[in-house]
Nucleic acid binder design. Structure first.
Length: 568
RNA sequence: GCGCGAGUAGCUCAGCUGGAUAGAGCGUCGGCCUCCGGAGCCGAAGGUCGUGGGUUCGAAUCCCGCCUCGCGCACCA
């Protein structure tokens, strides 16, 4: 890109005026385009080491600069000592040729060098439908995964199923109670159980399919046992109900994710960590490594050695049941990620999980397996508040009343849901106003962006031009000199660096912001300048610009998992 | 009390790792439809960037104190 030539020319010029060899040249886009195409604060940063005034240095740099080599049409000194550069418009416009000629590689890079990255997201317990928080995770995780793919990582999307533990027991108990109730037995779901309508549906399905096999006496006995805080005598039936319930909810969750357009490469079951012996292996290794101690009959891990403010229990005392605490399988799980060859592991989770960060990393460090300190990386998103009918919908699994991902998709459409979740930074809290999203669905930002894409497609449709046959390299792009065209060209040329930055920061919302801005520039340009039926040199140049813009908008939308319609 | 996150326009939020006159969407007000899609375009109003210090040529951005709000601080998962 021409900016590289400019950077190099500045390097040469700065040495000529006596700057240290290691001086870093930083080029930026000025906030105000009237200042030029590129700006640098080089004169200001050199002021101190060289002991001269910034404006004098700017003057010296300007004189020493080889304009032709830098591709610069004009240099200005402004403010406290900024150097502003204006590139030759035609030369700048020629940069978009390669977008059209090599769209497949546009905004792609190989920063990751083909190394493997694991993105774990959603990871909902199979105890209920996916709620809005999972929706935010799905949108974030999928977009992050795609961004990493585009920047050269070999990505695997993973869903971790917490299919063991107390919550699943409570799920099975809840189903049991609902079945009993449908047989007319007067019992209530105990504390910690699940009250949602879907439990009734599962219970109903079990009765419909296998009602003949149910023995009423067993159902009654079990229901009363559950109500009394005990276990049903018919363990077989209990296991079967648990399996049925988990399977039913997994099916539902899969359907939700399918409706959202997200698919996973791997579904990892927590239970497999136990059956494969990974949990005991991990515990043994930690004990052998000398990072554990016993106290009060419980086994502790010295997580304080690795930055935690308190040592954590790994294995409860016999009096408390002797089970492992949740973070032990979590550590074992992340060991498998490392062993499966993932150079990076990224966990997308709600901010309420942040206490696990230190613990899991501490566990991995304590194993002394050469796992990097920052492994795994976490993208924690803040809570989502749902507003509906003017008031906040309380998210409560217990009451069973909460907004699901499916609800959102039904209300505002998949593309809009994706965009709304991604237009904000993950670590700011988010108010999802359902009424607003619904009422605005005709005028919301995602349609605005898609409209820009559809309009460009319309040019080719109306002009009966096969856009795929356009070539940038042989086309004279110097007619693209109008301010609206130059702004659009710059926005397109900035796209690869933006993707790179967004991927590095794991921040998809930057893509969303770029899309909105570029769509705005597109509409402005489209409104002011015609493409078809202009003199050939102008039409041909504008066709390339239209095509480059269309491809770039489509690329940005695709990164976020949003469709780019040809017409709306 | 400790840890993490947030506090920017009436509302919802950006601000690209310290730059010039702080932006967008929605909302409000006012213009533009014989021309590739008006699901659009153009313009206006609206800000002591929570607050008090500090760092420097320069701070919404970095450091410290304080104030609000959210989340987390179990031998729960």
């Amino acid at each position: 890109m021409s900016a590289d030539a400019l950077k190099h020319a500045l390097q040469v010029a700065s040495r000529a005026i006596g700057a240290p060899d290691n001086t870093e040249i930083i080029l930026e886009r000025p906030r105000d385009p009237s200042f030029g195409d590129w700006t640098t604060n080089l004169a200001m940063t050199l002021a101190k080491p060289l002991g001269k005034k910034p404006r004098d240095l700017a003057q010296a740099l300007s004189s020493a600069l080889d304009l032709a080599a830098a591709g610069v049409a004009k240099v200005e000194i402004a403010g406290p000592g900024f150097l502003n550069f204006r590139l030759d418009p035609g030369a700048q416009a020629s940069g978009i040729a390669r977008i059209v000629d090599d769209a497949v590689h546009w905004a792609r890079s190989n920063t990751g060098g083909g190394k493997r990255a694991n993105i774990e997201f959603v990871s909902a317990n199979p105890t209920g439908p996916l709620h809005v928080g999972h929706g935010r995770q799905a949108a974030l995780g999928d977009a992050i995964a795609t961004m990493l793919e585009w920047t050269g990582w070999n990505v695997s999307r993973e869903f971790y199923y917490n299919d063991g533990g107390t919550q699943i027991e409570n799920l099975a108990k809840s189903v049991w109670i609902r079945i009993a109730q449908q047989f007319g037995i007067a019992v209530e779901i105990p504390e910690g159980g699940y009250n949602g309508e879907y439990i009734k549906e599962i219970a109903g399905a079990v009765i419909a399919e296998k009602g003949d096999e149910l023995i009423l006496a067993h159902v009654r006995e079990g229901a009363e046992a559950i109500a009394a805080g005990k276990h049903p005598a018919d363990a077989n039936l209990f296991d079967r109900l648990r399996a049925e319930a988990v399977a039913a909810l997994r099916r539902e969750q899969d359907k939700d994710m399918q409706a959202f357009g997200v698919s996973f490469d791997t579904y990892f079951l927590e239970s497999s960590l136990y059956t494969d012996g990974k949990v005991t292996q991990t515990v043994d290794a930690l004990v052998k490594g000398g990072h554990t101690f016993e106290d009060g009959g419980a086994l502790f891990l010295r997580t304080t050695e690795f930055g935690d403010d308190k040592d954590r229990v790994m294995k409860k005392s016999a009096a408390k049941g002797g089970d492992y605490t949740y973070f032990v399988p979590d550590v074992a799980y992340h060991v498998t990620k490392w062993q499966r060859g993932f150079a990076r592991a990224i966990d997308v989770q709600g901010a309420d999980h942040h206490s696990t960060v230190t613990r899991v990393r501490a566990g991995l460090q304590a194993l002394e397996m050469g796992i990097p300190q920052g492994y795994p990386e976490y993208v924690l998103h803040q809570m989502v508040t749902v507003m509906k009918d003017g008031e906040e919908v309380k998210i409560s699994k217990r009451a069973g009343s909460y907004v699901t991902v499916r609800d959102l998709i039904d209300w505002v459409g998949r593309d809009a849901v994706r965009y709304f979740f991604l237009m904000r930074k993950g670590d700011s809290q988010l108010v999802f106003d359902v009424d607003l999203a619904r009422s605005e669905s005709e005028e919301n930002p995602v349609y605005y962006i898609q409209m820009a894409h559809a309009r460009l497609s319309g040019i080719f449709r109306v002009g009966e031009i096969d856009a795929t046959t356009l070539r940038g390299a042989g086309t004279d792009l110097s007619p693209l000199t109008a301010p609206e065209e130059q702004l659009l060209v710059k926005a397109l040329l900035d796209f690869p660096a933006l993707v790179e930055g967004a991927a590095q920061a794991l921040e998809p919302h930057r893509i969303a912001g770029w899309l909105l801005e570029t769509a705005r520039l597109t509409h402005t340009w489209y409104h002011k300048h015609h493409v078809l039926n202009e003199p050939p040199p102008i039409m041909n140049a504008r066709l390339v610009l239209a095509r480059a813009t269309q491809l770039s908008l489509a690329a940005g939308l695709r990164l976020l998992g949003i469709t780019a319609p040809e017409r709306m």
